[in-house]
C-alpha cells in the first residue's frame, strides 16, 4: 500500500463513529482498503504488529498508530496469544428474530 492510500485509510478510520464491535453487514459498507484490511485480519485470526506493518507496507510505528485508532473505534481488540500481543477483529452481533411474543408463547 503506498503512502497516499495509507493516509486515506487513516482518515477513513478517524472519521468513523465508534462502534462496539463489527457486524458483517457494516463491513460490506466500508471503503475498499479498510474492508480488505479487516477481511485479512479476520482470515488470519489474529495478527502481530509486525505482520500488520508488513501488510500495510509501513513502519511499525505507523501501523501501531492505526491499530490504536481502530481499537479506539471498536473495530478490533488486543489479545494475548502464547504471551504475544496480537490484534483481532471484534465481531459483534447478538441477534434475534422479531417475532411477536404471542407466537413464541405458542411454540414453546
Amino acid at each position: 500500500m503506498d503512502n497516499e492510500a495509507f493516509n486515506t485509510l487513516k482518515r477513513d478510520v478517524e472519521s468513523m463513529t465508534e462502534v462496539e464491535g463489527l457486524t458483517m453487514t457494516d463491513l460490506l459498507t466500508f471503503p475498499d482498503d479498510l474492508r480488505l484490511l479487516l477481511n485479512w485480519m479476520m482470515r488470519e485470526n489474529g495478527v502481530q504488529i509486525e505482520e500488520m506493518a508488513s501488510y500495510l507496507a509501513q513502519e511499525v510505528n505507523e501501523a501501531r498508530m492505526l491499530l490504536e485508532k481502530m481499537i479506539e473505534k471498536g473495530l478490533i481488540e488486543e489479545i494475548k496469544k502464547k504471551e504475544e500481543e496480537q490484534y483481532q477483529v471484534l465481531v459483534k452481533s447478538s441477534r434475534n428474530y422479531r417475532v411477536p411474543k404471542k407466537i413464541w408463547q405458542v411454540i414453546e
Binding site: K92, S93, S94, R95, Y97, E108
Partner: peptide, 16 residues
C-alpha cells in the same frame, strides 16, 4: 429439538 431451535431464534446468539 423444536424447543432448542425456537429458543435460539428468540434469544439470538453471539456471532462472535
Amino acid at each position: 429439538n423444536s424447543g432448542e431451535i425456537s429458543r435460539i431464534l428468540r434469544d439470538g446468539y453471539d456471532v462472535g
